[in-house]
Write a protein that binds this DNA or RNA. Sequence first.
DNA 1: CCCCGGCCACTACGGCTGTAGTGCCGACAG
DNA 2: CTGTCGGCACTACAGCCGTAGTGGCCGGGG
Lengths: 204, 204
Amino acid sequence: MSARTPGSAPVRGASRAELIADTALALLAERGMRGLTHRAVDEAAGLPTGSTSNHARTRLALLEAAVRRQAEREAAVLAPDELPDPAGGRASLVDGLALTLHRFLTGEAHRALLVSRYELALEATRRPELRAYYDATGARFRELLSDLLSAAGSTDPERHTLSLVAWCDGMLFSCVAGSYSTEPPTREELRAGFAELLGGTLDG
Amino acid sequence: MSARTPGSAPVRGASRAELIADTALALLAERGMRGLTHRAVDEAAGLPTGSTSNHARTRLALLEAAVRRQAEREAAVLAPDELPDPAGGRASLVDGLALTLHRFLTGEAHRALLVSRYELALEATRRPELRAYYDATGARFRELLSDLLSAAGSTDPERHTLSLVAWCDGMLFSCVAGSYSTEPPTREELRAGFAELLGGTLDG
DNA sequence: CCCCGGCCACTACGGCTGTAGTGCCGACAG
DNA sequence: CTGTCGGCACTACAGCCGTAGTGGCCGGGG
């Protein structure tokens, strides 16, 4: 089935492990938890039967690989940091946040990443082993945001961070799986939302 | 196994259909999509093997029953309306919202209802048949909120409603499956959050 | 009284899933 | 050159899942 000969190198810079984990995330987004099986990954990735089962010996191992990769992929979307304005003022903070959220909502790959993220978050509810990675990356991101809010004059950075993160997460979830039956919000709308939220938290 | 004789009436006002749907929701929250199976419902509900399979002939039918019941249960939590203050001013609006959210976050039953809700929302991403109920109840709730915001002086009720709902949803999701590793927020914290959010949107 | 229709317990079956085992092949160290 | 070691393809198997079919029970209408 595969176009490459059995012994040759994997796809291109992507290790077999990455290919498997990426395919697992794609399946998670497309078919949900019930669609993520060892054999489905084999098939979707174009690997010979048994490859996934061999690489991730148990289902939990497969989920762990998926979560690890999820964190990497999210970091990659967040990293091209238009986000960090050291002390660029509130306007640039609002702009950066709106741009980042907007990027998540446009582009099919990013939307899929959001679905798999929530799918895994729900599963982590029941599997303590998955929580670790999740909490770690989340905490790092929140810390970063908290610094930004402090610099912008927040009187209660911790709570305000939680509030901001909740708004972002809720917005993303709504657009991907929730009330937003219509088109996703435009960048202006996101900017307005952020401006209002930050106005309330920072100006009191 | 069951304590009641085969021919006697079901539990107590709860029809067999309700029992099955409620058990399905409980399983969804406790074990996720993969844990929701016909046989698992039978076992968890203490029904003879095959009952669920017989009542919800296909898996989709079982999910539809679960979604329908989910809407009912949520309405029941929302309905004891401390929420609707016709024109009680912003303070009472903030109070009502904070109280409602706080009630969802305290009480194991309500938390479980949140998990099953997000589980079903994700599934609805892939099953158009499930979207119907979901969208309908969501739209009704948003309309109600929109009226409240208009009465409170919102200049853009539609967008502000979406923003408010996103904040609530994000807050709930965070507490149930997300960044909130610590204790859930207190009612004062929720009140503060709402006050800030509404301050930003209404005073602009 | 009998027939009929709905509800329910039980069973059958084909298919898929998780997991573990086995042997091959190529890489690399000595 | 040779031994060994990790990765990989392939296979085996037991268990579970969705779905459909069958026959019995019971209550209501004629």
